[in-house]
Design a protein around this nucleic acid. Sequence first.
DNA 1: TTCTATGTACGAGTTTCATCGTACTGCATG
DNA 2: CATGCAGTACGATGAAACTCGTACATAGAA
Lengths: 127, 127
Amino acid sequence: MPSTTRRAAAAIKTPAEPEGLPQPLPEPPVGDLRLETVLGALSDPLRLTIVRKLLLESEQFDHPCGWFGLDRPKSSLTHHFKALREAGVTRQRQYGLERRSQVRVDDLNERFPGLLDLVAAWMPEPQ
Amino acid sequence: MPSTTRRAAAAIKTPAEPEGLPQPLPEPPVGDLRLETVLGALSDPLRLTIVRKLLLESEQFDHPCGWFGLDRPKSSLTHHFKALREAGVTRQRQYGLERRSQVRVDDLNERFPGLLDLVAAWMPEPQ
DNA sequence: TTCTATGTACGAGTTTCATCGTACTGCATG
DNA sequence: CATGCAGTACGATGAAACTCGTACATAGAA
């Protein structure tokens, strides 16, 4: 098979980055973020857990998906991390084998001010 | 069949109201509102349209669902209005034949401050 | 090179949801 | 009483989405 194994998601482009970081994976540009899509991505307890943990405990940097300690099969986690990235909630970069995630705080605060505060204040349903 | 035709949705109770208004239909109490549920209810363009229109044009009162001018079959509208009410986003009261909706502004601002501002600022996707 | 660790791709099973046609209820009016 | 009207209830259909097993790809270390 050719080297173009990558499949392009519709209306998703890869932005450039100033630092020496790895290129982010394909993600929607800020201007294309849609409230209904972002809310849909956040309407799931597992994904809320991920985003909230990134917001509260990330210490200014991104994390591989093992860091979250989620008790789910790897393929399930891939699914949810991809959903968050494609909705524009997170940015993912490839560090060797690891694919680390961070919340697009600036982009989300610009487009949907206050939304991340609600996520940070969220608490999972008791039991 | 007996007069108890009403089916009780799980964990939904009917609160009391001070004024001479008709009783609201069953809805979750403020304390039971869940962020993930509310976001899920708002992650749909049609429902965002409904809530935004209520927020911006309601003139302090509630409206029957014909007022929205939505070009959908009646049974579809029933479905979406019920989804909004059961998520706790709207309150519905029966006025004779009409079932009118209003946004639970105070409840939502108490539990999820800023969320309704995002809905009010939302714009439907062009085209 | 082989082994391990991280994570993806694909596909199947299941569930949930959106959509909508049809039949029905209940009020109001002639 | 008959009709019209606002809206529900129910059921079917089709499309997403969640979950997860399995197989695969790749980087780094022994």
